[in-house]
């Protein structure tokens, strides 16, 4: 069987398209590369969706933590503390446990014990808490002059936030936020590993790497393949975030832009 056939059979195996049975003997390098790559679909799905949805909640949480309203502030602080202070491993456990018990309450919750939704919610809350803290830090360091200038222009409320505070906050937070995105993609490997069961042998890249390590009894091939995929993914994330960073800072003079670039290294 040529490698193209393998690609056709297993390229989309992780989402249930293609050959039903996984390879069971005579494992080729091609099969390992294709199936582990197929599993990356899930890692990208979890990472991307959680990142985008978490971004919105993170902004809200950051504003909440900076809010003058005591209840809102306390709630945001506790949310950030609990999700940043506990290992993802334990969060997955409780989420799976909790969603299982909710299932008996109402069939509405049936989908929640499946990884595609349940694990996504955990990752969403988790990244919202981490990014919320980053945004909060950035919000505090928005230069006083920016806010004063907004006031001078007669901006207030939503438009003041939307047009002045928010863009500056993003600019300041971006380097640290890039790191958070990398960590989030790495964290997606925990979904099937410790939290949620794999159905019909559809899992993420680590699930398939584990499968091959288990069948070939040789961990030195599948895990480095997995590592290679993740290095590529990390490079992609870094360059996409770099492009956005360039856009966020396009109004700054050349010298200051360079200074911004140093910041990524400051935080993690």
């Amino acid at each position: 069987m040529s490698c193209w056939d393998t690609l056709a059979d297993y390229g989309l195996r992780s989402i249930g398209i293609g050959e039903r049975l996984l390879p069971r003997s005579d494992f080729t390098l091609c099969q390992q590369v294709v199936l582990i790559g197929s599993g990356m679909i899930w890692n990208i799905y979890f990472g991307l969706v959680a990142l985008v949805s978490g971004f919105l909640l993170a902004t809200a949480v950051a504003l909440g933590k900076a809010s003058g309203h005591r209840v809102i502030r306390k709630l945001s602080e506790w949310f950030i503390f609990v999700f940043r202070g506990s290992p993802l491993f334990i969060q997955f456990f409780f989420a799976y446990f909790g969603f299982q018990s909710l299932k008996s309450v109402s069939s509405v919750f049936d989908a929640f014990s499946a990884a595609w939704l349940g694990a996504l919610i955990v990752l969403f809350l988790n990244t919202a808490a981490y990014s919320g803290e980053i945004f909060y830090g950035a919000l505090r360091s928005v230069p006083k002059g920016d806010a004063e200038a907004a006031d001078a222009y007669g901006l207030s409320g939503w438009s003041r936030f939307r047009r002045i505070i928010w863009p500056t906050m993003l600019r300041l937070a971006w380097p640290a936020y890039t790191n958070e995105a990398i960590f989030l993609f790495h964290a997606t490997t925990l979904v099937y590993f410790s939290g949620f069961p794999a159905w019909q042998q559809r899992g993420d890249a680590l699930y398939y790497a584990n499968y091959f390590a288990d069948k070939t009894f040789n961990p030195f091939v599948p895990y480095p393949i997995l590592a290679g995929y993740f290095i590529l993914l990390t490079l992609t994330v870094v360059s996409v975030f770099g492009l956005i960073n360039r856009r966020l800072n396009r109004h700054l003079p050349q010298e200051q832009r360079l200074r911004m670039r140093f910041r990524p290294n400051l935080i993690r």
């Binding site: 790495h186 964290a187 490997t189 680590l206 790497a209 997995l226």
Partner: peptide
């Protein structure tokens, strides 16, 4: 840094 710690 590019590789998830579990895989490592």
């Amino acid at each position: 840094r590019g590789v998830p710690d579990i895989a490592f």
